[in-house]
């Protein structure tokens, strides 16, 4: 049995005929924040989508073990209900569904899938308000339609609210920092740091060192051309900031 929360072993993934991930391996233990940095087109977003079970990609070899379970062939909702959450780079808009109704629906689905009792309406309202308060989200926002008319920053804050409500074991943040102003970045990163504990971990995909300065990751991985080219500590992000990705090519 692995002590790691996530183990990716020699993962090869194709989009159509093109191989995007070319033997990627990665391990994330509990209670750690890991970061992935890499140039455009390296395969960062493909990796997060594959981990979430997106069917557009074909896994040609390798495996993904999450909580000692092989999730390589699982459906997105099955992976989600095991405790893996992806905060999207571009969250979609769902007209006509209020944020509150959406949170209630996904929280209920998650509880039921894990054999837990569903919270009653008043307990759930209290629970959501507590989580929303951490991010400075008020009741008016909870009444709005999911992501409809939200600014880029509001969408990312909403993603973070879903993260707090579902309280997953592994969170993938796919460029959550893009589109966030300085204040919003502080609120989101504080929310994430506050969540981190011995029973969860985070995988942060980013282009910018600023978020990593706040999250202080245990490890930084450089993803180039579908493989992890180098793994190091936070100083690796500093090196990327100064020198770019050219030396990893």
């Amino acid at each position: 049995m692995s002590v790691n929360l996530l183990e990716i072993d020699d993962l090869h993934v194709k989009a159509g005929e093109k191989e995007i991930l070319k033997g990627l391996s990665l391990s994330i233990p509990f209670n750690e924040i890991h970061a992935i940095m890499g140039p455009n087109g390296a395969g960062k977003s493909v990796l997060s989508n594959v981990l979430s079970g997106k069917e557009d990609y074909k896994i040609t070899s390798g495996k993904i073990i999450f909580k000692n379970e092989n999730i390589t062939e699982l459906q997105p909702n099955e992976i989600s209900n095991l405790g893996l959450f992806m905060a999207f780079q571009y969250p979609v808009e769902i007209p006509g569904v209020t944020l509150m109704n959406f949170l209630k629906t996904i929280h209920e689905a998650n509880r039921k899938a894990n054999g837990l009792e569903v919270l009653g309406p008043s307990d759930f309202l209290k629970y959501v308000r507590e989580k929303a308060g951490i991010l400075g989200i008020n009741d008016e926002v909870l009444k709005r339609q999911l992501n409809v008319g939200f600014s880029g920053g509001e969408k990312k804050r909403n993603e973070t609210l879903q993260l707090l409500v579902l309280d997953p074991i592994l969170t993938i943040l796919d460029e959550t920092d893009s589109g966030l102003d300085v204040d919003a970045l502080d609120i989101v990163s504080d929310g994430i740091v506050g969540m981190k504990n011995e029973e969860n971990s985070f995988l942060v995909i980013t282009h910018y060192k600023k978020l990593l300065d706040k999250l202080r990751p245990s490890k930084v991985h450089i993803l180039v051309d579908g493989r992890i080219a180098e793994t190091g500590g936070p100083d690796l992000a500093e090196k990327i900031e100064n020198e770019g990705f050219e030396s990893f090519g």
């Binding site: 909702n77 989600s80 959450f85 979609v92 769902i94 959406f102 996904i106 998650n110």
Partner: peptide
Amino acid sequence: FYLRTRGLDRKKAINLILDGH
């Protein structure tokens, strides 16, 4: 896909989208 990554199976995800419309 977005809704499925939040734990809803395909049918529930579709129904939620249509309910919203």
